[in-house]
Structure formats: C-alpha cells, structure tokens
Design a binder for these strands. Structure first.
Lengths: 340, 340
DNA sequence: TTGTACGCGTTATCAC
DNA sequence: GTGATAACGCGTACAA
C-alpha cells in the first residue's frame, strides 16, 4: 500500500523546501528549469495529487454543491440531479446528495451538516412537510451566512434567492384547455393538498381554463390526496365510483397510473371514454398503456440551469443581492391517452 | 449577513485563548464551570458550529462516502442510493454521488476527483464500458492507497474488495424454471453483451434451467442488445418477427416494457400467448399493463449493506485485508405477466 | 485552570 | 532562484 504523497514528502526526498516544490509544480517562473523538471518528474512518478481538503480549507471553497431533495425514487428529481451533475462536473464541482424524504427535520439536519463548510452552495426542492409547516428558518440561516441557495420546483416566496420552476399554472391551463377543446366537460383534477406550491399553481391553471371557457367547475371533481406515504387507492376508487368523469388531469405520474388502471378495470376505454393527462414526462408515462399525454417538466434542463445559477453566484466576487426566478415553459407531449 | 463564527472569534470576544474555548465547548474537566458556561452561552448565541473541513484535515476523515454509478435514471440504482443514504446518514456520513454515464473515462475522472481527500471510501457499480475494456487500474490505484471500496451489482473479480450482489444466476434460473414448469418451451432471453457481469450470470442461470430440464436451447432465441444509448427497438421487432416465442426473460425493466408493447401490438395476449418475466422490481414493472412478474433485486437492501460494509472498513482501525462478498437472494415477485 | 505550540496540507508573501 | 513564515480552523500534548 503506497499512501498518498504530500508536498512535504517530495520536499524531504528531493532535499528542497516545501514552497519550492509547490511553486515548481505550478510551473512558477521563479524556479529554475532544472529544479522544476526534477520536482515534476518526481511528482509524476509518485502520482502526486494535491489534497482537496487542504485546498478547501485554504481557499474557503470546497467545489462541492449540496443538493437536498425530498425523494430520489421520483423520476423527475432523478432527471434534475442528472442535469445538475452534468453542469457541475463540467465545471469541476462534485454533487453531495441528501434526501429529506419529505421530512422537515431531515431537511434541517441535512442542511446543517452540509452548511458547516462541506459545500459552497445549495440546490434544493422543499419537502412537503416543510411547505406545509411554512417554516423556512433553516433556509434563512443559511442565506444569512452568505451561502448561495437555488430553489427549484417546490419553492417559497419567503426566501430571497434564485429560483427555477416551470410555469406550473400554464402547464395545467394548457392541458385543461386541450381537454375542453376536445369537448370534454367533466374534467377531474387529481392533486395534492394546496400547501405544495406546485399543486397550488396547477390547480389555479385548471380553474383558469374553466373560467376562460365559461364553464362552471364542479368542485367534487377535484380530489386532493396526500403526498406522504402510500397512495390512497381506496379514495381514488371511491372518487371514480361517485363521480361522472370524461377526462382526468393528474399532478404527478403515480396518481395517473393508479387512476388509469382503476378506470380500465371498470371497463372504460382510454382515451375514448375518458382522457388522461399527467405531469412529468417520465418512464411511467412513456411506457404506460396507453402511453400517456403529459405536461413535460424538463427536469434535466432545470437541473442544469439551477447548477449554472448557483455556480455563477458562488464564483462571482461581488456581493450583489440580486436574485432571479427562471420560469421554464412546460411542453405538452401528446400520446395515446388523449384523442388524436 | 452574519458570517460563520470560529473558535478564534469567540476567543477574541471573550478574551481567552482558542484552546480554552475549544476545551470549554467539549465540556472538558480542565475548564472552570464559570468559563465553560460563559463560552457555551456565547457559542450558542452566535450559533457556533465547528468547520467540517478543518476537522477533516485534522482527522484525515471526511465523513463523506463517494458513490459512483453508471446512471441514475435507472430505478434500480436509485433504490440503491436510497439505501446507502439511509444507512450513511444514520451514521453521520454524507453521500457524494457521481455518474459515470456508462463511460470509462468519466468513471476514472470522477474517482480521481474524489480520491484526493474528498471521501473516506467508495461504493460503486462499474460502467459497462469499464467492464467491456476490463481495465480496472483506477480501482487498483485507489485500493492500493488504502481507500476502502465496496462494489455492488456490476462487479469484477480482478479487484480485491468487499462486494455485494444478488445471486443473478439463481434469479434467472428460478425465473426460467418457472416458465418451463408452466409448459413453456420457446423461452427467449433478452440480455446485453456478455461483458456485463450481471448479464453473463443471468444468461448462465437461463442455460442451467434448460440443462436441468433436458431441453435443448435454441440459440437464436437469445437476443443481445447494447446497454449504451437508446434501446434498439428495430432489433427487438425483428427478433419477434423472426422467432417463435412463448415466453420471455429480460435482464432489465426497459427491455421488458419495450418488448411487451411490441408483442401486444402484434396482437398477442400476455400472459396467455406469451409470458414475460423481467429483472428489477421497479415502478415500470409494477405499473406495467399487465403488471410484470419480476426477479426482485432488493436495491435498497443492497445499498444499506454496501454502506454498512464500507463504514465498517472505514472505521476499523486494523488493517486486516479480509474481504467478503455478500450474495443476496433474489425474489420472484409474481404478477400478471405470467400465468397465475 | 488556562495558555502555548504544533500539526494536518496547501498557498502566498516576503526575505535572503 | 530558493526558503522561511504565516495563515486557513481545529484539537491536543504539554507547559505554566
């Protein structure tokens, strides 16, 4: 086992000073060609690599990005991570991923762990419990310390920082409008409780489409499910048993596939008897039967933008307090769960 | 903006020495009750938290685990990460995730980045390009430096380290056997090239089941697809056009859903005309139509075990060179793509 | 009971 | 052209 070699080791072996070695390795003009060659050859031979930790301590920069998300088994978050990784790695940053598992406490603990020097900035999406409580003190503390934060998807207006979202309201509006245009009138909305920022916006888009078309909304056609734990299949069953519905807009993939299966078991044909539109263009949607028309959220793009915003902030010397919110346009991907 | 406070700051404010502060905060017996209370109160007020980087440099321990995987949009890897996170966080470790995207070069670069002090050990699954090349020098270098490595799923025998896998051969054997027992004889295998360790083992299991039942294998019923890039839908189409098949075993979820859709489009009924068994108990399988019978790989469990093995090694003082390979039993999850 | 000094590995400044 | 020294933030053996 050949342990890592340090500047000190090289200096000792070559009988020069540590600073000479350091300079020689950076090809400093101060050092003679002779010494430089000797040092560089030795360093290469023993595969010298500077210790990241020491550099971090010195520079007060870790080149690590902390990513805190509610869950990783959701395809959307997975694509965002991929986008973050892509941009971050290309710029010499590593990504530390922490999962809050939709828990406020875990979110707080993870952030505290990372905030003590482990990372240069945060990219995060709020846990549903956090949004429910409306307690953002852990975010405030971090930003007050001067650590840059970029929020994506599940955001809050209580915190001044950069943000990236898709236009959720418009996405839902667009989807609902399409269903209305195709002659559907009994359009159900399956969503979560309103404390989730994205669900709220999507519900607004749904309402807006109805208003514009001068159609009354039947409130009983809006079903709100919990994001935590297992999907409440029984409530979905009840919902379809007690409501007449000819189209469904769902705020996520899971709700959609569950619902589609239930109505198919009732003998309904998709899309003829009942149309479906979901959110998130993930694998579940793509490979569903019939394949699902969705409002695509462009997770990877979102991740790249978030990473770019964060790294820009981290690397900008100036302490300007200007924050921006980037709003990406969602796209309607037409597949076979809607007509034509 | 209140910047992070250090021991030095506290010492200056309270007009004591840094070491006194340090000791006081650790409740050292050496320090008077008076001073301790004063220091602790001040620290709490200004929310003092020790700097992780400084501690890492001092202890030569980062409390970070490096995870290098080929892809994150595969549900299996996602569940493994979740298992790793779970165990690691519970033991005070953070997880740095790096994606090789199935590329040898990226795998090497990522490992080098992390190996220079950023992490205490690696958990990884090899990229397909790495397994294809059979070049494991980057792993050798790391282990020779004394950095513990745990390989999971896609492993190699060329490297001495801890490993976690499921018994892929047995999983495939079990699945094939079941199909044979149900009277299927024209069982296709859709797999990847043999350089992927897991695919190789699964192919062996498939063969073993046939041998045991004294049935000749029709080699044209084995389809090998590339893992890189987009799934070659055309080759799957051709395969089903030119082969008579009454059951299919696929080595991953994606291959399975693609194939299922193709045969359904040809008008075949699953499971009556043709049965399907896949690998990986992910969402695609669960929500497929019909829901898919699978060999479950227990990714989360695998992640937890890998994390446990790694942290044990990291925290054990002794330098014993004893490595173990944990083999998890796969489970057959029966759903509706096979008969009853 | 408190403080001094040193080391972790690196870099930057300044003196020789 | 080279080297000594200080500094990043912390912990600790040892001295006072």
């Amino acid at each position: 086992m050949k342990a890592k070699i340090t500047l000190k080791d090289i200096a000792r072996e070559l009988e020069v000073s540590i600073s000479t070695v350091s300079k020689a390795l950076k090809n400093s003009e101060e050092i003679s060609r002779d010494t430089k060659e000797k040092v560089q050859a030795f360093a290469k031979l023993y595969n010298y690599k500077p210790n990241n930790i020491a550099i971090s301590l010195k520079n007060k920069r870790t080149k690590n990005i902390g990513v805190v998300i509610p869950a990783i088994v959701h395809h959307f978050f997975t694509t965002v991570i991929r986008g973050i990784e892509k941009y971050a790695n290309a710029h010499g940053y590593n990504v530390i991923v922490c999962l809050s598992e939709e828990s406020f406490d875990k979110e707080v603990i993870n952030m505290e762990m990372l905030a003590n020097g482990s990372i240069d900035g945060f990219i995060m999406s709020l846990s549903s419990e956090t949004q429910q409580k409306g307690d953002y003190n852990h975010l405030k503390e971090v930003t007050e310390q001067g650590i840059p934060v970029v929020l994506f998807d599940r955001i809050t207006n209580e915190i001044d920082c950069d943000k990236v979202v898709i236009d959720d309201q418009f996405g839902a509006y667009m989807a609902t409008k399409k269903l209305i245009d195709q002659g559907r009138r009994k359009i159900a909305l399956i969503t979560t409780d309103d404390y989730l920022s994205v669900s709220k916006a999507r519900t607004e888009g749904y309402r807006k489409a109805f208003e514009e078309s001068d159609i009354e909304i039947n409130e009983s056609r809006i079903l709100k499910l919990s994001t935590m734990g297992i999907v409440d299949e029984e409530r979905i069953q009840e919902f379809f048993d007690s409501n007449e519905v000819d189209a469904v807009l769902c705020v996520n993939e899971i709700f959609t596939v569950y619902s589609m299966r239930l109505v198919q078991e009732k003998g309904l044909n998709i899309p003829n008897d009942i149309s479906f539109i979901g959110f998130t263009d993930g694998k579940l949607s793509k490979y569903a039967n019939p394949s699902l028309t969705v409002v695509a959220q462009h997770g990877e793009k979102m991740g790249e933008i978030a990473a770019q915003m964060l790294i820009d902030k981290v690397e900008s010397e100036k302490e300007e307090e200007s924050f921006q919110t980037k709003i990406l346009e969602p796209t309607l991907v037409i597949r076979n769960s809607t007509i034509n």
